[in-house]
Simulated scan of single mutants.
Amino acid sequence: MRQLLVVFALSLMPLPALAHKVIAGVFPAGDAIEGELGFSNGDMAQNQKVIVYGPDGAELGRTLTDTDGFFLYTPTNPVEHTFKADLGAGHVAEVTMPAADVAAIMGVEADVVETAAMIAPKEGGTQVTVASLTNEERAAIAQAVRDETRPLRREIASYREHNDLQTILGGIGYIIGLFGIGFYIAARKKMTS
């Protein structure tokens, strides 16, 4: 009877909430800033308004996420850009790209020299000349790389969320707790017999 009471009491205990965190990230994408918004459970923020602020808090512009939770924003000033989105239910995404990264995207700080690079041939090999790429070719390559790395970034963020230290320690705690209950029941049986 006591065993049934213990099992009943355990079934009434509150379960941990299946909470999720907001995932937000920005990174260079050619001459634009690409960003990602979503939740750690894999749900992405679709058609979500994203407001871009400067370092002084003034609004620089707005953009909208696509169906995969990604957005593009083309900067016009080489200043720090802060991207904010209200995802509802108390979830607010905020991520900042430093001014140096924005300036590099705009090509303000770096002088880009379009020259051909020579790769030294190995012994007995042939010489290879790598020519400079046009802006259209660079944009096409950057788009292809972005498209291929999007799923990887999402999987990594999801993996980090689901396998964090707190989850692992919580699982170990549950196992130890179950063993403790088992030992308690066994000791009670031994005392009564």
Results as ranks from 00 to 15, higher is better:
residue 44 M to H: 09
residue 40 S to A: 10
residue 77 N to K: 15
residue 106 M to L: 14
residue 129 T to H: 07
residue 115 T to F: 07
residue 123 E to K: 10
residue 55 P to V: 06
residue 46 Q to A: 12
residue 41 N to Q: 06
residue 56 D to T: 14
residue 80 E to R: 14
residue 83 F to A: 06
residue 107 G to D: 11
residue 104 A to R: 13
residue 137 E to G: 02
residue 94 E to M: 14
residue 149 T to K: 06
residue 147 D to Y: 08
residue 113 V to F: 08
residue 37 L to N: 02
residue 143 Q to R: 15
residue 93 A to S: 09
residue 41 N to W: 11
residue 113 V to E: 11
residue 139 A to C: 03
residue 148 E to T: 11
residue 57 G to S: 03
residue 95 V to M: 02
residue 87 L to W: 07
residue 115 T to K: 15
residue 107 G to E: 07
residue 34 E to F: 04
residue 118 M to R: 12
residue 76 T to I: 08
residue 99 A to S: 11
residue 136 E to M: 08
residue 93 A to T: 08
residue 41 N to F: 01
residue 139 A to S: 10
residue 67 T to H: 07
residue 49 K to L: 11
residue 112 V to P: 03
residue 146 R to C: 01
residue 81 H to W: 05
residue 64 L to Y: 06
residue 68 D to F: 00
residue 128 V to E: 13
residue 65 T to E: 00
residue 80 E to P: 07
residue 37 L to R: 02
residue 67 T to M: 09
residue 78 P to R: 00
residue 98 P to R: 10
residue 112 V to L: 08
residue 88 G to K: 08
residue 126 T to M: 11
residue 94 E to K: 09
residue 52 V to I: 15
residue 80 E to H: 09
residue 134 T to Q: 03
residue 69 G to D: 01
residue 39 F to I: 04
residue 49 K to P: 01
